[in-house]
Design a protein around this nucleic acid. Structure first.
Lengths: 136, 136
DNA sequence: CCCAAAGTACGATGCCTGTCAAACTTCGAC
DNA sequence: GTCGAAGTTTGACAGGCATCGTACTTTGGG
């Protein structure tokens, strides 16, 4: 039993009933390449992963934001383990609400999460935060 | 021979090679409920349709913009017939580039909207929304 | 020739959201 | 009980894009 449970506090964030999630919201969640990268990493890992264990090109606070959006879209479930927030794909639940959609998406080649290595640490300097390229 | 052909002008807009289209671009196109509505109507009609024959909650110039985005995302093909611009879904071509994705998307229930203002977009002010005029 | 119909092009505008840094909270370890 | 690690919250900001009206172009018909 954790200290939080002893204290009666629940740090588990609210998860939406998947049947109340709209396709609009799902697409808004998945249109962001960082969020799509999270979903892909989660799917590839086959196990729950802490927020900090993802390879993401954004700051911690931005990452928190992205996890929040994914949770609200019914794509992930989150719970605490110590100070780490663990993440799971809600694969089966989601597929019941949107049959075949997530598998179809995951099956696509997606350049959005491949070229982002070499990011390294210091983002405070000259790095202009290249969002996904959008050459007209 | 049309006047355009006599003059050597080609009003056919450029269509991207579907293999150069990224998943990112496709999702950006389909995240807009108006554009999704266009795709759905096109899919339901089973025939080429003029831009003006769609039931859309936006002005003509905005509609033009949406058709442009869909074309750039490799989802539709456009050609002229008189003063009308006809639109076709590039179903098979697209499915070769993104196998199963479009069918999966079309299979989803789509209120085309979250709780916003009823017809999508980010236009949230109280300006009366002029219904686009339908061609007779 | 002139006009209407169908779209396009062009700015202008306003909302949305992705981004960050800084301050704060919670938890486990020492 | 102190410290660091992991995330969250908050506030600010910048750019993107959906939207509109207006002016313009092209086409076809009287």
């Amino acid at each position: 039993m954790t200290a939080a449970e002893r204290a009666g506090r629940d740090r588990t964030p609210p998860h939406p009933d998947i049947t109340t999630v709209t396709l609009q919201r799902v697409l808004e969640a998945l249109v962001d390449p960082v969020r799509r990268s999270i979903v892909r990493q989660l799917h590839a890992n086959h196990r729950d992963s802490a927020c900090g264990s993802f390879d993401l090109p954004v700051s911690k606070s931005t990452a928190t934001h992205h996890f929040h959006v994914l949770r609200e879209a019914g794509l992930i479930r989150q719970y605490y383990a110590g100070t780490s927030r663990m993440n799971t794909l809600r694969l089966e639940e989601f597929d019941r609400a949107f049959p075949g959609f997530l598998p179809a998406l995951l099956a696509q080649r997606d350049g959005a999460d491949d070229g982002n290595d070499g990011w390294g640490g210091s983002h405070t300097d000259t790095t202009p935060r290249p969002r996904v390229e959008r050459s007209t």
